[in-house]
């Protein structure tokens, strides 16, 4: 089936089978490999992208559902020369070890900060329930998100 969707502000059309996952459309068909596949069972959050500004897991959306969606991936939030404030904070706080979970962490962190006031250590950790860091490097991730939530 042909589906049309907007990815990082650009209109895209792909011809895929019904059972293709959104994450595979992004990675395989559109070449946006910043969105990762970790567990492929909707637990780890490495595939987190934004749909209409809210974080979702791209491994748990099938192609026909993605038709007409407005998707933002990690590639769409900043550039190497002009990082998104959350990317800048992750760099500043060294909020990554192997980096595999980082794109999903950043996408979820942006949703968290945009949709919650008065974030503290506990609420940030609870907000990361759907994202796993297999290096267990949560401490600096929480620090990075806290710094953005605090406005700097």
């Amino acid at each position: 089936m042909k589906i049309s969707l907007t990815v990082n502000g650009e209109a895209c059309e792909v011809d895929v089978s019904n059972n293709t996952l959104l994450v595979d459309i992004l990675r395989t068909h559109l070449g946006l490999t910043g969105t990762h596949v970790g567990c492929d069972t909707s637990q780890c959050g490495a595939c987190t992208v934004h749909v209409d500004g809210r974080a979702i897991k791209a491994c748990t959306v099938i192609a026909p559902q993605a038709d007409g969606m407005n998707v933002t991936t990690i590639e769409g939030i900043g550039t190497p020369d002009d990082l998104h404030p959350m990317q800048e904070a992750f760099r500043e706080c060294h909020a990554l070890q192997c980096g595999f979970c980082t794109p999903g962490m950043i996408m979820q962190a942006i949703d968290l900060v945009e949709n919650n006031d008065n974030l503290d250590n506990r609420s940030i950790r609870e907000g990361l329930e759907g994202n796993l860091c297999r290096c267990t490097g949560y401490h600096n991730i929480v620090r990075a998100i806290q710094s953005v939530a605090d406005g700097g």
Binding site: S42, G45, T60, Q108, G130
Partner: peptide
């Protein structure tokens, strides 16, 4: 329920 990403869908 679940996590934030699940609650959005």
């Amino acid at each position: 329920i679940g996590d934030n990403q699940v609650r959005n869908r």
